[in-house]
Amino acid sequence: MLSKRHTPEQVITKIAEGDQMLNEGKTIAEVARSFGITETTWYRCKSTYGGMKANDAKRLKELEAENRRLKIMVADLTLDKAMLKELAEGNF
């Protein structure tokens, strides 16, 4: 089965719809089945995006991308530092 990635805005909308279905008396299994996901996926999305608004989710994704970029920069700088230190010691 081919998996489909949803945008954070779509996930937040589906969580709101699912919460409404739960308030109407449906079970978690029925809600998850109606969206074509597993209960585990429902709980994971709920814990990640529950209580967020669409613009909050967009900001979260932007921050995650920036954090990923900064981690790569730190790794590169650490490697450069290690190489320069090794050259300065003459162990090449």
Rank of each mutant, 00 (worst) to 15 (best):
E64I: 02
E86P: 02
R59Y: 14
K58P: 00
E9R: 14
K71Q: 11
D80L: 15
M83Y: 12
A75Y: 13
D76N: 14
K53W: 09
A16V: 00
E89V: 08
L70I: 06
E39P: 01
L60Q: 05
A82P: 01
R5L: 15
E17V: 03
E89G: 10
L60Y: 04
T48K: 15
A16N: 09
F35Y: 06
E89C: 09
K71P: 00
D56L: 06
T40C: 11
Y49R: 09
T7D: 08
N91E: 08
N67R: 14
I28D: 07
T41E: 09
E66K: 15
I28K: 11
D76P: 00
R5P: 01
V31P: 01
C45R: 10
P8I: 13
L63K: 13
E62W: 10
T7R: 03
E24G: 07
G25D: 01
F92N: 12
G36M: 04
A16W: 08
K53F: 10
L60D: 00
V31F: 02
T40E: 10
K4Q: 14
R68F: 10
N23R: 07
E39W: 02
E89T: 09
A65Y: 07
A54V: 10
N91A: 08
G51Y: 07
A57N: 05
N55W: 11
R44Q: 10
R33T: 05
W42P: 01
M73S: 05
S3A: 11
A29R: 13
N23P: 00
S3T: 07
R5V: 08
E9L: 06
E24F: 07
A75V: 03
T38N: 07
D19T: 03
A88Y: 12
M52Y: 15
D80Y: 13
A88S: 15
K46Y: 13
A88K: 13
Y49A: 08
Q20L: 05
Q20N: 05
D76K: 15
S3L: 10
R5D: 11
L79V: 09
M21G: 01
T48M: 14
K85T: 10
G18H: 04
M83N: 10
K85E: 09
L22T: 03
L87I: 10
R68M: 08
D80I: 13
S34G: 02
K58T: 01
R44F: 06
T40F: 12
H6L: 15
L63A: 10
L2F: 09
